[in-house]
Simulated scan of single mutants.
Amino acid sequence: MVPKGMVDHLLLLIGALLVMNTQFHCEGNDKVDVTILESAVSKGAVCLDGSPPAYQYAKGFGDGAKNWMVYLEGGGWCDSKSDCLKRANEALGSSKKITPNYFGGILSQSRTTNLDFYNWNRVMVRYCDGSSFTGDVEEIDQETNLHRRGARVFNAIVEDLLAKGMKNASNVMLVGNSAGGLATILNCDHFRALVPSASKLKCIADSGFFIRAKDLPGAEERESYYARVVEFHNITRFLPKSCTSKMDPGLCFFPENLVGDIQTPLFLLNSAFDKFQITYKLKPHPADEPQWQNCIQNIGVCSPGQLQIIRDFRTAFLETLQDIGNCSSRGMFINSCYIHDFLWSTARWNGNGSPRLGNKTIAQAIGDWYFERSFVQEIDTKNDYPLNCTDS
């Protein structure tokens, strides 16, 4: 029998890929070819199945020719040999299975919807390691040929992009969604060190602020799951000693314990009602599971008690943000949509489906923050129930 936790994660990954595929295709955005980085293999920088890493690259033009955006794809994690082996047979663990994604949202070449970044060099780093680009295990599993080399994948691709012109970049952004958003937080200062000549370099994490919420249902499983991910991929040495010297390494995979020490300017884009965290990480009592599943699929049928749990999550999320401090270089756009991921969808990025805070869409807020046209720390404190935002 497949463990229930694994089933949950597989369903999540399948659902996320279907949604992303639909979003990219239905918007008619730019199709960009996949680059397989064969040269990375000799450096041990490979996907879970040992295949070379991959990325998609759209060359910049005009006044954006010296500006670069590196986008880290999301897609969950794997915490065991069996879990990672499943991914190794799919696009989230093998470049052999990767097909081109369409570039929309912040990656779009449309000047109308993406005025600030449409003509930048835009790169989507495909996610095939299961560790948010932080794992580094030297040993290869002889029985399964399983590799755990996410940190090497990140370094090899950045090195290749530097040779393609990023070493001479003026403006640079590291961006990511979901597990890629967490990867952006974890790699932000490291990326800054790899691109020292850029005059302006900033990081944007979309839906990557996963909270511990130690007083809410499922806290023990949240903590143990990330501890397993950290241990299985040997992530401890990648994590900052400022955190691991004070607490268990697994807890240092939660952004709340890391963000305060990040020196590079960082923007946090998230919903306080993050659908992924509520759906897959907020687990009430097992006896309530069937009713809870109905609720999280359709907020309109939630009972008062179930809604209270969801509201408690929002409270914990906002309190966690307060605990990380109010740095002047920290940008925020914390909305109340019952959604996970915003940047790759053109409608959510800068269309009718984009939540507005301070009378700005997400695109306007991030553009203003990046180019320092205004201070941006927008948090929706008015809606204490999740909003049914749409993409239309």
Score class of each variant (00 low, 15 high):
residue 266 L to A: 10
residue 363 A to P: 01
residue 105 G to H: 08
residue 324 I to Y: 06
residue 363 A to I: 02
residue 35 T to V: 08
residue 262 I to Q: 05
residue 227 A to E: 11
residue 77 W to M: 04
residue 86 K to G: 00
residue 61 F to M: 10
residue 255 P to R: 00
residue 21 N to Q: 09
residue 373 R to Y: 11
residue 260 G to I: 04
residue 62 G to M: 08
residue 32 V to A: 01
residue 87 R to T: 03
residue 138 E to I: 02
residue 177 N to I: 11
residue 42 S to T: 12
residue 320 T to D: 10
residue 199 S to D: 11
residue 378 E to S: 09
residue 175 V to I: 12
residue 347 A to P: 15
residue 217 P to L: 05
residue 85 L to F: 08
residue 89 N to I: 00
residue 66 K to Y: 04
residue 113 T to A: 02
residue 165 G to R: 07
residue 296 I to A: 09
residue 305 G to H: 14
residue 86 K to I: 04
residue 286 P to Y: 10
residue 238 F to R: 02
residue 181 G to H: 00
residue 369 W to H: 11
residue 267 F to A: 00
residue 209 F to M: 14
residue 86 K to N: 03
residue 73 E to M: 01
residue 297 Q to E: 13
residue 91 A to E: 01
residue 104 G to C: 13
residue 90 E to N: 07
residue 154 F to C: 03
residue 18 L to C: 05
residue 255 P to Q: 03
residue 205 A to D: 01
residue 314 R to V: 10
residue 10 L to E: 15
residue 307 L to Y: 14
residue 160 D to S: 15
residue 209 F to V: 12
residue 351 G to Q: 09
residue 368 D to F: 06
residue 261 D to C: 02
residue 204 I to L: 10
residue 71 Y to N: 02
residue 46 V to R: 00
residue 88 A to Y: 03
residue 144 T to F: 11
residue 163 A to L: 15
residue 84 C to A: 06
residue 19 V to R: 11
residue 188 C to T: 09
residue 41 V to G: 00
residue 271 S to W: 06
residue 179 A to E: 00
residue 155 N to H: 02
residue 71 Y to R: 05
residue 289 E to I: 14
residue 311 R to K: 14
residue 226 Y to R: 06
residue 5 G to S: 13
residue 6 M to P: 01
residue 75 G to A: 09
residue 73 E to T: 01
residue 391 D to I: 06
residue 165 G to W: 15
residue 253 F to A: 02
residue 316 A to Q: 03
residue 323 D to W: 13
residue 24 F to L: 14
residue 381 T to P: 01
residue 53 P to H: 01
residue 122 R to F: 10
residue 240 P to T: 05
residue 172 V to F: 07
residue 93 G to C: 05
residue 22 T to Q: 12
residue 117 F to T: 07
residue 211 I to W: 03
residue 301 V to G: 12
residue 89 N to C: 02
residue 125 V to I: 07
residue 23 Q to R: 01
residue 191 F to A: 11
residue 135 G to E: 13
residue 79 D to A: 14
residue 342 F to M: 06
residue 275 K to W: 10
residue 283 K to A: 09
residue 336 S to Q: 12
residue 104 G to W: 11
residue 188 C to L: 12
residue 17 L to S: 09
residue 282 L to Y: 03
residue 292 W to G: 08
residue 198 A to G: 07
residue 378 E to C: 09
residue 183 A to V: 14
residue 276 F to R: 04
residue 291 Q to Y: 13
residue 113 T to E: 01
residue 6 M to N: 10
residue 78 C to M: 09
residue 293 Q to T: 04
residue 386 P to S: 15
residue 287 A to S: 12
residue 224 S to W: 06
residue 223 E to N: 11
residue 124 M to P: 07
residue 53 P to K: 03
residue 168 N to S: 12
residue 319 E to C: 02
residue 71 Y to V: 07
residue 271 S to N: 08
residue 162 L to K: 14
residue 59 K to V: 15
residue 65 A to V: 06
residue 19 V to H: 12
residue 123 V to I: 15
residue 24 F to C: 08
residue 126 R to V: 02
residue 61 F to S: 11
residue 158 V to S: 03
residue 88 A to E: 07
residue 368 D to S: 06
residue 123 V to K: 00
